[in-house]
Every structure is written in C-alpha cells, then in structure tokens.
Design a protein around this nucleic acid. Structure first.
Length: 299
DNA sequence: AGTGGGACCTGTCCGC
DNA sequence: TGCGGACAGGTCCCAC
C-alpha cells in the first residue's frame, strides 16, 4: 500500500509501538527482496533502541540510537503489521496475512511488553537499505528525490510556481511528469489519476501547454497544484482516522478503503453531478490512466 | 537530456 | 474445473 499517504499512515500506526522500543532480534526469513538485505543488517541493529520513525516520499525511515537509519520501501505489495505477542489483543493493520510472505520480523521490547512488527510482501518488490544518519541524503535511493509535495522542514513546498518552472517548454505527458519521483516525490499511479481529475486535466496532455510560452502558469496549473496537495492530505486523513479509532481486525486499511473518483472506475459515471461523462481507461507507458473524457481537457 | 519499454515476482480475475 | 493471458499500488536499467 505504498504511495505517500499509505506510507505516512503506516508510519503513524507503527510509531507508538516502535519508537522507544528496543530491537531484541531482527529476524530475516530470506536473503533479500528486490535487493539482497544489507550485509550484517541484523548485527548492526540488534540490541539498539529505535529513536523515531520518519518518512521521505514513499520511504519509511527508522532511526536507531546507534546512528543507523533503516530505509524501508514497501514496493507494490509490501505491508507492515503489528502483533502483540503476549496477549489476546493482537491487532493488524494490513491486508496480507499469508505467512509465506512474512519476510522480516522486528522483535521489539518496550516497557516489559513484547511486540512483533512483521514485514509481508507477496511480490517482493520492496527493499531495505541501511545507512548512517550523516549519509542519509547521499543514499542512492533518496539522493535524487524531488520535493515533498506536502512540504518539508526547510519550507519547500509544492506550488504553482514550482510546477510552472519545471513544465515550461517541455513536451512530456503530465501523467508521466507527475509520476517522476525526481520532480515530485511520493505520488503514484492512483493519486496522479485523482489529482488530474480534480484539476480537469487530461493525463496525456503535454506539460508545456499548462504554462504560457514565457512560463506563466495557466489557471489549470494552479488547480493541479491544489489538487495534488488536497488529494494527498485527504488520503492521509482517511487512513489516519481509521487507525486512531479502531483496532483493525482485518486488512481494510490501505488504498481501497478510499473512494476514488476515477481510479479503477472505468465505465462508471463521472462523480461530478453536472457531468454525464463515463470514466475511461488508457495505457500510458505501460500503466493505466483513468479519466473523465468530458471533464479533463486534452489541450 | 529526456523518453518509453521491459524486467523484477506473485496473486487474482476473467474468458474460453 | 483448468488454463492462459492480462493486470496490479513501484523502481531501476537500458535502449532510442
């Protein structure tokens, strides 16, 4: 469940159990996932305490009190679930319970209580990397990432000016530009489709047509900047609220508890009350785009 | 330089 | 019921 809002939701869900806990054992059930696990991974972390959980784009960052940072990417199908091992109140917040795909287990202790956090990933597109706090920004996975769409601690944030600057004079389809993690980091296929719908922009539209020749943003580009931020914030809110309010006993948390306007709604009616359009699907560089041909302008 | 396409891997769903 | 093909939230690498 891995676009930015899902990773943020996972972070919020795991933080109370993981922050401040001691990692008594790191159990690796195979040699690696997409990449081999880093050499000496367990030895480098066992016996240390987790300081905090943070997030960069779709990466979960687990910081330990020996200065190491574990970088976690959930790939397409990765998830993390918490199991309290010493009581009947074990709870889950993911959809994968097939133990064959439990690839890594954090054995944690906090205040005399034992908890397991289990990484499950059927497709094994996820990966783990280990780095030091000082080398974090040079890490091969993090170094090339673009801006955090919801802003960062340095005050950088997604703005219409940012988009205009990077779109002016270019020709690539807006769908592909928004999926490019070097520009904006954290968007994936679902939220790009949703944001383009709310902005009224066709996924195949060339980004250069969203500014004037001199780089002045058109109205739609302002709508796009707003839509990206709102779609992500709403998704975090939806995930966060279900985490807070419930001990989830099933795998309901993830993308598909949300109601999407266009994603995976091919053939259904456009959700805009004054539109009688039908949601369409097209393939762009091998990936599905969903859109309303009536609301989303191609030029 | 900036694209698109394939590879990675397993599970699920749909049509025959 | 079984089988093959298409498809799925992401990223990297390699041709053009």
């Amino acid at each position: 469940m891995p676009e930015l809002p899902e990773v943020e939701t996972v972070r919020l869900g795991l933080a109370p159990a993981m922050e401040g806990a001691e990692l008594s054992r790191l159990q690796l059930n195979r040699a690696g996932l997409r990449y081999p696990f880093p050499k000496g991974l367990a030895g480098a972390l066992e016996g240390t305490r987790i300081k905090n959980l943070s997030r960069r784009a779709k990466y979960l960052l687990i910081r330990f009190d020996n200065g190491k940072v574990l970088i976690v990417h959930l790939g397409m199908s990765g998830s993390l679930r918490i199991e309290n091992t010493d009581g009947p109140d074990a709870f889950y917040h993911e959809r994968n319970k097939d133990e064959r795909h439990d690839h890594l287990v954090f054995h944690l202790q906090k205040g005399g209580k034992k908890t397991n956090v289990i990484y499950n990933d059927p497709r094994r597109f996820g990966f783990f990397d280990l780095t030091g706090l000082d080398d974090l920004s040079q890490n091969r996975h993090l170094a090339g990432l673009g801006i955090e769409p919801l802003g960062d601690k340095f005050g950088n944030e997604l703005s219409v000016q940012f988009l205009a600057e990077h779109f002016c004079g270019k020709t690539r389809p807006v769908k592909s530009a928004l999926l490019d993690q070097r520009l904006i980091a954290g968007l994936g296929n679902i939220y790009v489709c949703e944001a383009l719908f709310y902005a009224g922009i066709h996924p195949a539209r060339s980004i250069g047509t969203l500014t004037s020749k001199t780089g002045k943003p058109k109205l739609e580009l302002g709508r796009l900047a707003d839509a990206i931020v709102r779609v992500l914030q709403d998704a975090i809110k939806a995930g966060g609220s279900s985490l807070r309010d419930h001990r989830l006993t099933d795998g309901s948390l993830g993308y598909f508890q949300h109601n999407f306007a266009v994603y995976d709604r091919q053939g259904k009616n456009c959700v805009k009350p004054d539109c009688n359009g039908t949601i369409a699907r097209m393939v762009q560089s091998g990936r599905s785009s969903f859109y309303c041909p009536k609301c989303q302008k191609a030029v």
